[in-house]
Design a protein around this nucleic acid. Structure first.
Length: 395
DNA sequence: CTTTGTTTATGGAAGA
DNA sequence: TCTTCCATAAACAAAG
């Protein structure tokens, strides 16, 4: 797989041909919407995929983005919640409207790209899911919305959908960094929402989005790496080692060391706290409840969460906040996250603050955005508190 | 019936 | 070399 990706990375991708001018996201568009593809889809089509996090060609970055620093500085508008903000960007800056679906997600048929030539994006499925969820206004998406986000963004995934969608489902289920969120009673439908585990924040802080530095594991529901190593059965052949690895992964989830599922063991999603959530409990969970039968957890102190100081996932925390790599997930999404954080402040009201680093227009816009969100089809009362804080942890 | 979600198994590749 | 991560396939169950 990686080999394939690697080979594809060496290809010269004609993005201009892939994405007709009218359909290309500009750099700023990308930043406004939080969509990552723009970073790889310059208007001049000269941008290749990156090689190990380093762009193969950087001219387009300079031409279209200036540089990362100025990108950040130039961010004044919040992420597109439902409509472009007056003066913030032209309508074309918001090619995708992800805010009117059941999770505030909806495709924009007018900007749906049509060119089917493509190469495989250099993202793992976990990366894609993470990006999709992070860019969503409510930091959670249904499975179908995740599919759609990926397909809209990456033409490659318009092929063999059964194959990669199975992988997406597997990734969601298998990886602790994704948690299932039950639907609001007011929003019945098939499937749950998927969100990022509040402690999964810095998975891609190593600067390479092809591969995480460390898999996120919910420590309270599974043994630590040390414990697992001590339990590891010495093996000689790599095949056995691989099997042991997989069995360990499973055993720490809900299976025995023989790799057979323990029928009495609750699934990770039952254990980690994503089922079912009573609205009255939302916003009241504490880190001490991690691993209990309570709900999605988030820190009591948003500032702590912002700094990634809550929880016991020290391995992930060790990544720190120094993810300064140009093409790290964090770089791609930090601005949006920051905006989401601020939006949350506006939404929750109990943390209304001003952000002097941004213009007053921004603050006004953020409030406006909050209003937009409250008028969306999602039951904001039910979900906003629940997901405003957890996402802070991933900043 | 289709979609969603879980689990097991396996192979390849990257990183230590 | 060993460990870990990722991709893929497939079987199966549950829910809508």
């Amino acid at each position: 797989m990686h080999n394939r990706v690697k080979l594809e990375l060496e290809e010269s991708v004609d993005w201009h041909a892939m994405y007709p001018e009218s359909e290309v996201y500009s750099g700023m568009h990308n930043l406004h919407t939080g969509l990552p593809s723009g970073s790889f889809l310059p208007n001049d089509g000269s941008m290749n995929y990156v090689n190990n996090g380093v762009p193969l060609q950087t001219n387009s970055i300079q031409n279209n983005f200036g540089n990362i620093g100025s990108m950040v500085q130039n961010i004044g508008a919040p992420q597109a919640a439902s409509a472009p903000l007056p003066g913030s960007a032209p309508p074309s800056a918001y090619p995708l409207n992800y805010c009117n679906g059941e999770s505030g997600f909806q495709r924009d048929p007018h900007t749906y790209r049509r060119n089917y030539s493509h190469s495989k994006p250099p993202y793992s499925y976990i990366s894609l899911i993470t990006m999709a969820i992070k860019q969503s206004p409510h930091k959670m998406m249904t499975l179908n919305e995740i599919y759609q986000w990926i397909v809209d963004l990456f033409p490659y995934y318009r092929q063999n959908q059964q194959r990669w969608q199975n992988s997406i489902r597997h990734s969601l289920s298998f990886n602790d960094c994704f948690v299932k969120v039950p639907r609001s009673p007011e929003k019945p439908g098939k499937g749950s929402y998927w969100a990022l585990h509040p402690d999964s924040g810095n998975m891609f802080e190593n600067g390479c989005f092809l591969r995480r530095q460390k898999r996120f594991r919910c420590d309270k529901t599974r043994s630590t790496d040390v414990e697992k190593k001590s339990h590891k059965v010495p093996t000689v052949q790599s095949r056995n080692l691989r099997a042991a690895d997989h069995n360990e992964c499973s055993s720490t989830k809900n299976t025995t060391h023989q790799g057979k599922r323990d029928p009495t063991a609750p699934s990770i999603h039952q254990k980690v706290g994503v089922s079912p959530v009573h609205p009255s409990t939302i916003g009241q969970s504490t880190s001490s409840q991690v691993g209990s039968t309570s709900q999605v957890l988030y820190p009591q102190n948003p500032s702590e969460a912002y700094l990634g100081m809550v929880g016991d996932d020290s391995q992930m925390k060790s990544d720190t906040l120094t993810g300064s790599h140009t093409f790290s997930i964090t770089q791609l999404m930090c601005v949006q996250q920051d905006q989401a954080y601020k939006m949350d402040m506006c939404l929750t009201n109990d943390h209304l603050v001003q952000y002097p680093q941004y213009s007053s227009d921004y603050n006004n816009a953020a409030v406006k955005n909050g209003q937009d969100m409250t008028s969306s089809s999602v039951d904001v009362n039910y979900y906003s508190n629940m997901y405003s804080r957890p996402i802070l942890n991933s900043l």
